[in-house]
Design a protein around this nucleic acid. Structure first.
Lengths: 355, 355
DNA sequence: TGCTGATATGTCATCGATGACATATTGGTT
DNA sequence: AACCAATATGTCATCGATGACATATCAGCA
């Protein structure tokens, strides 16, 4: 409960000046053998712990990152990103401030202002809500990194190529022999930010589905495309949408032999629908998911497009540090890193029964 | 990119002293009508943002909490707690530093020291690894709150009554008419911290299972108790353990009509085992889980003991603030808050088929 | 002897905000 | 006229660490 010792206290105890204590602490400059010993023992005795607040003020650097998380309640994807970010920040001696934005542009703005006032050395936006807020941070001179999605290419970003991932998923199904492939996904319109913004994740996955079919010369059948209202709530609501989507597909006169769901929760709901219809996965119908949230790793195991979540966070941290002043060399140009996804083949996909 | 304006800059622009600017900023003391206007417009013009670092140094208060998370990779339980904590901290104008401990006592110590150096106003341990680290923080005079588990009762804590929760789960099964109830759970021995420490979560749930049976006058049958090695990894490994545990139970000559699993992932694996054995839940066998992670909310929906995760985080924040200096009144005594769990009855439990 | 460079240590302004204190100007009261 | 309280604003030490700079000592060398 005694207030913490300051440099001055240590200096007094050791009978030296504060400058000498600093020199011992950081092991630079000249310090006599005997003096060093006295200071060291004084440090021990007082239980001195550096005051990082004072240090930050003096050095004009807080060794702190701000992480704006667009949680949309519980999203394991983002939690994993946060972990990677924190891990990597630690490597650089930085700590991370968490700020849950909850899909609100207003809260996101508050978060940015908080971080500006706290003089964080960088800000990471995981799924930015409003591009204007990214701009706000950048204008304050703080290095900014966007994760998962970006509206424009003016700033650093760590992305996943959703299109490639989706195409690989489709090609996996093609390779197994599927031709009639259903789609269950979120409504892209709900996630469009502005007319000139880059396509949303939902849009990318849907368009990749269409492109894949076209590339295979398979005629598009809109009856196979189930666009569902929810996305990213990641609980029973979304599972229910996946369930409903699959139900629709199963009632088709000529039902699909495989279904591509744009996220694991939708896929999980879809699996249940198959099961409840008295059919079996993957014998009667294959299901493939996206994201590799651990919903995919439970039972039954789901084939899915795995995103390197941890690594995304790590790379985001790296980008921040590359752009911290003084900007390392040419680091004034925005860096855009795109990481590959990986197809995790589990038990929910197999060759179709020949008809 | 221009460095941020300071109070002095604003003062100069407005032609007043820094004291006056402070008064305008915090709206206290006397400020003339016309002066206020000049200052206000100077604030606007410079885009002034308070330097919280300097403020913290001066006020000897950082408005910052440290959150030590014993993640053990991805645990949605803790993520939800973190959210509640952050949310509530925000209400008090505080931001939260995240620190992932990854089950390492050494890393936990580093985290505590980091927070001491950063002079956080409080530290929350979610599932502390080593009680000594809690002590370390407390000795530095920082209010400490333990979440989920505590070794001794010397410090504040927010807990859930695992025993009551488990008993309610058992009583739910009894009420449905089950008598022969299996158990699948973690090995308590793996989670014992020290001889004199309070029982671990795993121990509490197991002993509640035994007590419930005894209270009903049902003879204990150790063949029904499946103690499995893993716990809290929350991925396919744990699901596999649940699967294996259920397999064992199903091969019993007289198999249980219901199974109590001490976490949802074990339960999820168990469900799969039932399914693969050609049996149906809940028709042939009931399964009940614990925690209400969203593994329970997918498909098929799982009856489970729901923990108020968000609220746990919120209460933890409250406790920190109650114990921040000056300690509010009698708040020098440790506060131990125990929150109730809630039985979330979903589709995985039903009356047994009469035999 | 006097000079140089290496070694050793102290002084102090600085980072930016705060608030106690001092000072100055009112209008109103006895 | 003298005084007081309310109003208005400025001065400056302080929080703690840092590092530029000044100073001091000493060994080695010309």
């Amino acid at each position: 409960m005694q207030k913490a010792a300051s440099l001055k206290d240590v200096a007094r105890l050791a009978g030296v000046s504060t400058a000498t204590v600093t020199r011992v602490l950081h092991n630079n400059g000249y310090v006599g053998e005997e003096t060093r010993a006295r200071v060291t023992s004084a440090l021990k005795e007082t239980g001195y712990q550096l005051n990082v607040v004072a240090q930050s003020l003096r050095k004009q650097q807080t060794r702190t990152l701000g992480h704006l998380l667009n949680t949309i309640t519980r999203n394991p994807f983002f939690a994993e990103v946060a972990l990677g970010l924190e891990e990597q920040a630690l490597q650089h001696g930085c700590n991370v401030f968490i700020y849950n934005v909850q899909a609100s542009a207003e809260r996101e703005r508050l978060g940015v202002e908080t971080f500006i006032r706290r003089r964080t050395d960088g800000i990471v936006f995981t799924s930015p809500v409003d591009p204007a807020n990214v701009e706000l941070a950048a204008k304050a001179g703080i290095p900014v990194v966007q994760v998962d999605w970006l509206a424009r290419v003016d700033h650093n970003a760590v992305l996943v190529d959703n299109e490639v991932g989706a195409i690989e998923a489709m090609e996996h199904l093609f390779a197994l022999g599927h031709q009639r492939i259903g789609f269950i996904g979120a409504d892209p319109a709900r996630f469009r930010h502005s007319a000139d913004a880059r396509p949303s994740v939902a849009e990318q996955r849907l368009s990749a589905y269409r492109k894949s079919l076209a590339a295979m010369g398979i005629a598009a059948d809109e009856a196979l495309v189930q666009i569902r209202p929810y996305y990213y709530s990641l609980d029973e609501r979304d599972a229910a949408e996946g369930y409903a989507g699959m139900r629709e597909l199963l009632t088709l006169e000529q039902r699909p032999t495989a279904v591509f769901a744009t996220c694991d929760i939708l896929a999980a709901g879809a699996l249940q629908a198959v099961h409840d219809a008295g059919l079996r996965v993957p014998d009667d119908i294959s299901v493939i998911g996206f994201d590799d949230t651990y919903a995919a790793r439970l039972s039954p195991p789901l084939t899915t497009v795995a995103l390197p979540m941890r690594e995304i966070g790590e790379r985001a941290a790296d980008l921040v540090f590359r752009h911290m002043p003084p900007p390392s060399d040419a680091a004034s140009e925005p860096d855009i890193v795109t990481l590959p996804s990986r197809l995790a083949i589990r038990g929910s996909t197999a060759a179709p029964v020949s008809q």
